[in-house]
């Protein structure tokens, strides 16, 4: 006999399916499904009504249906581009095979497909850029935060600088980062594009602060009792940090990491727009410059996708936090 256990949030649906709904379950159904759906529907309606009244130089502001249409066409373009790419590779293979048959000593030259990146390629680039920037920031912020948390001297020395740089907008950093990257990253055979590095460093500069601050606070607030345990056990500095300080600070650190990732994603779009890194930011900018009657609809698709990805990234961090942090009560929604 197999017993199926349902997660609690599924209870109302199961009850609905079996025709046994209690008052409480109706409440839960309303809260989980009906109110959110109504909220979205009301938003779409208002959007449609407002859009009809806004005329821009690029035509009418797109309503939900036009945006949906553009989402479809972006998907079609992506598939068409992939088909072209496959065809290109097939042609190349055939050409190389036939030429090798005639001239066996010939060294074949493989060329990669050079079509413009589609919307979906740009999402991929954006994700890679944001993750690189976020990882770089974490690699700097976590050790530095531990150091600042452990040493009140370091805290006193660095706190003014942190407070000074924390509120700086990515747009202010970007020109400086661009110039520095161009000056320092000089190579004939670039592994990654300069625009990628510029975007990544800008993201790092802007998103390292929450992790830094939260790690430092987490480390400072290790309970005195646990520090005493460590002293009685005569743990050396390394074990003290590894066994007592780090696990204690982990919940706070994760809160910081989650905030950082949120900021990283917001900053990225602006950075890509100006650095011309082939990601979502550049997509928005290109569409804006392009100025066709479809542009606004396509930008709106990007807006929704940006929101959706930001939401998913946050959920991902939340899941990671739930899995790794011992103090489950520290995990907020």
């Amino acid at each position: 006999m197999v017993t199926l256990t349902f997660p609690t949030w599924m209870e109302p649906y199961r009850a609905l399916a079996t025709g046994k709904m209690s008052g409480e379950q109706w409440q839960a159904l309303l809260r989980q499904l009906i109110w959110p759906v109504l909220g979205i529907a009301a938003f779409l309606l208002l959007w449609q009504l407002a859009a009809q009244r806004i005329d821009t130089s690029l035509g009418q502001f797109p309503g939900p249906s036009q945006v949906w249409e553009q989402a479809g066409s972006l998907l079609d373009e992506h598939q068409a581009s992939r088909a072209k790419e496959a065809a290109f590779h097939e042609r190349q293979e055939k050409y190389i095979a036939s030429r090798l048959a005639q001239q066996p000593e010939w060294e074949p030259v493989y060329r990669s497909y050079t079509g413009a990146p589609t919307f979906f390629d740009q999402i991929g680039t954006s994700l890679i850029t944001v993750m690189s920037g976020f990882l770089l920031a974490s690699m700097i912020a976590i050790p530095l935060g531990i150091f600042i948390g452990l040493s009140s001297t370091a805290h006193a020395a660095m706190n003014p600088l942190i407070q000074l740089f924390k509120p700086v907008s990515p747009l202010a950093w970007l020109p400086l980062v661009t110039m520095v990257v161009s000056a320092v990253y000089v190579t004939d055979d670039p592994l990654v594009a300069k625009s990628f590095l510029t975007s990544m460093f800008t993201v790092s500069l802007c998103c390292l602060w929450p992790t830094l601050m939260n790690t430092a606070v987490g480390v400072t607030s290790v309970s005195q009792d646990l520090t005493n345990v460590s002293r009685v056990l005569r743990l050396n500095a390394m074990s003290h940090v590894r066994k007592i300080v780090l696990p204690s600070a982990l919940p706070m650190m994760f809160t910081g990491l989650r905030l950082s990732l949120g900021i990283a994603w917001m900053v990225l779009i602006a950075a890509e727009m100006l650095a011309q890194n082939p990601g979502l930011g550049k997509f928005v900018w290109d569409e804006f410059q392009n100025g066709s009657s479809q542009s606004l609809g396509r930008i709106m698709v990007a807006v929704i996708v940006i929101g959706l990805i930001g939401f998913l990234l946050d959920r991902l961090m939340l899941m990671l936090q739930r899995a790794l942090v011992w103090d489950k009560s520290s995990v907020q929604r």
Binding site: L226, N228, V229, R231, V232, R234, I244, P247, L250, W326
Partner: peptide, 19 residues
């Protein structure tokens, strides 16, 4: 002169590492 395990302490609020 310093704390050490030959003088082990049982603290009032247990002081176990919660993780």
């Amino acid at each position: 002169t310093e704390p050490g395990p030959e003088r082990a302490v049982v603290f009032q609020n247990h002081s176990l590492l919660p993780w």
